[in-house]
Amino acid sequence: MVPVLIFGLSSVVTLGAALAVVTNKNILHSAFYLILAFVGVASIYVLLEAPFIAVVQVLVYIGAIAILIVFAIMLTRRLLSKDLIQRNAQWGLSALGATGLFLVLGWIVYSVNWPVKLLTVPEDPISVLGQELLSTYVVPFEIASVLLLAALVGAILIGRERE
Protein backbone atom coordinates (compact mmCIF):
# COMPACT_ATOMS: atom_id res chain seq x y z
CA MET A 1 0.00 0.00 0.00
CA VAL A 2 2.76 2.45 0.96
CA PRO A 3 4.78 1.90 -2.27
CA VAL A 4 1.66 2.52 -4.33
CA LEU A 5 1.06 5.80 -2.51
CA ILE A 6 4.67 6.87 -3.00
CA PHE A 7 4.53 5.90 -6.66
CA GLY A 8 1.34 7.89 -7.15
CA LEU A 9 2.70 10.98 -5.45
CA SER A 10 6.06 10.97 -7.19
CA SER A 11 4.61 10.23 -10.64
CA VAL A 12 2.08 13.06 -10.27
CA VAL A 13 4.88 15.42 -9.19
CA THR A 14 7.16 14.29 -12.03
CA LEU A 15 4.59 14.50 -14.80
CA GLY A 16 3.07 17.75 -13.49
CA ALA A 17 6.46 19.40 -13.20
CA ALA A 18 7.45 18.09 -16.66
CA LEU A 19 4.29 19.58 -18.16
CA ALA A 20 5.08 22.88 -16.47
CA VAL A 21 8.62 22.71 -17.91
CA VAL A 22 7.40 22.50 -21.49
CA THR A 23 4.44 24.90 -21.23
CA ASN A 24 5.49 27.63 -18.79
CA LYS A 25 5.80 31.08 -20.38
CA ASN A 26 8.75 32.10 -18.18
CA ILE A 27 11.77 30.02 -19.15
CA LEU A 28 13.38 30.48 -15.72
CA HIS A 29 10.32 29.03 -14.00
CA SER A 30 10.58 26.11 -16.43
CA ALA A 31 14.12 25.52 -15.21
CA PHE A 32 13.00 25.39 -11.57
CA TYR A 33 10.13 23.05 -12.48
CA LEU A 34 12.74 20.89 -14.24
CA ILE A 35 14.49 20.51 -10.87
CA LEU A 36 11.20 19.38 -9.31
CA ALA A 37 10.81 16.82 -12.11
CA PHE A 38 14.33 15.53 -11.42
CA VAL A 39 13.48 15.13 -7.72
CA GLY A 40 10.38 13.14 -8.71
CA VAL A 41 12.44 10.86 -10.96
CA ALA A 42 14.97 10.36 -8.12
CA SER A 43 12.16 9.18 -5.83
CA ILE A 44 11.06 6.73 -8.55
CA TYR A 45 14.61 5.30 -8.51
CA VAL A 46 14.43 4.91 -4.71
CA LEU A 47 11.16 3.04 -5.19
CA LEU A 48 12.93 0.75 -7.69
CA GLU A 49 15.58 -0.03 -5.04
CA ALA A 50 18.39 1.71 -6.91
CA PRO A 51 19.62 4.21 -4.28
CA PHE A 52 22.95 4.72 -6.04
CA ILE A 53 21.22 5.85 -9.22
CA ALA A 54 18.87 8.07 -7.18
CA VAL A 55 21.74 9.82 -5.44
CA VAL A 56 23.69 10.21 -8.69
CA GLN A 57 20.51 11.64 -10.24
CA VAL A 58 20.40 14.33 -7.55
CA LEU A 59 24.15 14.94 -7.77
CA VAL A 60 24.47 15.14 -11.56
CA TYR A 61 21.08 16.42 -12.68
CA ILE A 62 20.29 18.87 -9.87
CA GLY A 63 23.80 19.66 -8.69
CA ALA A 64 25.32 20.19 -12.10
CA ILE A 65 22.92 20.18 -15.06
CA ALA A 66 20.02 22.14 -13.56
CA ILE A 67 22.31 24.75 -12.02
CA LEU A 68 24.12 25.14 -15.36
CA ILE A 69 20.78 25.62 -17.12
CA VAL A 70 19.60 28.22 -14.59
CA PHE A 71 22.91 29.99 -14.94
CA ALA A 72 22.73 29.98 -18.74
CA ILE A 73 19.21 31.45 -18.58
CA MET A 74 20.43 34.22 -16.30
CA LEU A 75 23.26 34.97 -18.74
CA THR A 76 20.81 35.27 -21.65
CA ARG A 77 18.55 37.61 -19.74
CA ARG A 78 17.13 39.56 -22.66
CA LEU A 79 15.04 36.49 -23.54
CA LEU A 80 13.25 36.54 -20.20
CA SER A 81 10.93 39.41 -21.16
CA LYS A 82 7.27 38.64 -20.67
CA ASP A 83 6.01 39.48 -24.19
CA LEU A 84 8.36 37.05 -25.91
CA ILE A 85 6.44 34.06 -27.29
CA GLN A 86 8.18 30.90 -26.12
CA ARG A 87 6.46 28.36 -28.38
CA ASN A 88 6.73 28.15 -32.13
CA ALA A 89 4.08 27.87 -34.84
CA GLN A 90 4.07 24.07 -34.95
CA TRP A 91 3.20 23.56 -31.27
CA GLY A 92 -0.27 22.23 -32.03
CA LEU A 93 1.09 19.65 -34.41
CA SER A 94 3.80 18.65 -31.92
CA ALA A 95 1.25 18.25 -29.13
CA LEU A 96 -0.80 16.00 -31.43
CA GLY A 97 2.27 13.97 -32.37
CA ALA A 98 3.43 13.58 -28.77
CA THR A 99 -0.03 12.47 -27.63
CA GLY A 100 -0.20 9.99 -30.49
CA LEU A 101 3.22 8.58 -29.60
CA PHE A 102 2.13 8.28 -25.96
CA LEU A 103 -0.97 6.32 -26.97
CA VAL A 104 1.08 3.99 -29.19
CA LEU A 105 3.68 3.44 -26.46
CA GLY A 106 0.97 2.80 -23.85
CA TRP A 107 -0.69 0.27 -26.16
CA ILE A 108 2.67 -1.50 -26.65
CA VAL A 109 3.35 -1.55 -22.89
CA TYR A 110 0.01 -3.18 -22.19
CA SER A 111 0.04 -5.62 -25.12
CA VAL A 112 3.51 -7.08 -24.50
CA ASN A 113 3.79 -9.82 -21.90
CA TRP A 114 6.92 -8.72 -20.00
CA PRO A 115 9.11 -11.60 -18.69
CA VAL A 116 9.00 -10.31 -15.10
CA LYS A 117 11.09 -12.25 -12.57
CA LEU A 118 10.58 -11.31 -8.96
CA LEU A 119 14.16 -11.58 -7.69
CA THR A 120 15.79 -9.63 -4.89
CA VAL A 121 18.52 -7.03 -5.34
CA PRO A 122 22.11 -8.11 -4.45
CA GLU A 123 23.18 -7.42 -0.86
CA ASP A 124 25.87 -4.85 -1.69
CA PRO A 125 24.96 -3.59 -5.17
CA ILE A 126 27.62 -0.89 -5.25
CA SER A 127 30.61 -3.22 -5.12
CA VAL A 128 28.98 -5.42 -7.78
CA LEU A 129 28.43 -2.28 -9.86
CA GLY A 130 32.06 -1.28 -9.50
CA GLN A 131 33.26 -4.72 -10.54
CA GLU A 132 30.93 -4.74 -13.55
CA LEU A 133 32.13 -1.28 -14.61
CA LEU A 134 35.79 -2.29 -14.46
CA SER A 135 35.46 -5.77 -15.99
CA THR A 136 32.58 -6.33 -18.43
CA TYR A 137 32.08 -2.67 -19.32
CA VAL A 138 35.64 -1.41 -19.06
CA VAL A 139 35.83 -0.24 -22.69
CA PRO A 140 32.61 1.83 -22.58
CA PHE A 141 33.75 3.16 -19.19
CA GLU A 142 37.03 4.41 -20.66
CA ILE A 143 35.24 5.84 -23.70
CA ALA A 144 32.86 7.68 -21.37
CA SER A 145 35.82 9.26 -19.59
CA VAL A 146 37.29 10.34 -22.94
CA LEU A 147 33.88 11.79 -23.85
CA LEU A 148 33.78 13.78 -20.62
CA LEU A 149 37.29 15.10 -21.21
CA ALA A 150 36.39 16.07 -24.78
CA ALA A 151 33.25 17.82 -23.54
CA LEU A 152 35.28 19.69 -20.91
CA VAL A 153 37.84 20.92 -23.44
CA GLY A 154 35.15 21.66 -26.03
CA ALA A 155 32.99 23.64 -23.63
CA ILE A 156 35.94 25.78 -22.55
CA LEU A 157 37.02 26.38 -26.17
CA ILE A 158 33.53 27.32 -27.34
CA GLY A 159 32.67 29.41 -24.31
CA ARG A 160 35.92 31.37 -24.27
CA GLU A 161 35.82 34.98 -25.38
CA ARG A 162 38.13 35.60 -28.30
CA GLU A 163 40.44 38.58 -28.12
Binding site: P51, V55, V58, L59, I62
Partner: peptide
Amino acid sequence: IHVGVLYIVAIGAFGILAIL
Protein backbone atom coordinates in the same frame (compact mmCIF):
# COMPACT_ATOMS: atom_id res chain seq x y z
CA ILE B 1 22.56 3.75 3.48
CA HIS B 2 25.13 2.18 1.16
CA VAL B 3 25.75 5.50 -0.58
CA GLY B 4 26.14 7.72 2.50
CA VAL B 5 29.10 9.74 1.21
CA LEU B 6 27.48 10.42 -2.15
CA TYR B 7 24.25 11.37 -0.38
CA ILE B 8 26.04 14.03 1.66
CA VAL B 9 27.61 15.52 -1.47
CA ALA B 10 24.34 15.38 -3.40
CA ILE B 11 22.32 17.16 -0.70
CA GLY B 12 24.87 19.98 -0.83
CA ALA B 13 23.55 20.77 -4.31
CA PHE B 14 20.33 22.10 -2.78
CA GLY B 15 22.31 24.68 -0.83
CA ILE B 16 23.75 26.12 -4.05
CA LEU B 17 20.26 26.09 -5.51
CA ALA B 18 18.90 28.03 -2.52
CA ILE B 19 21.53 30.74 -2.94
CA LEU B 20 20.81 30.97 -6.67
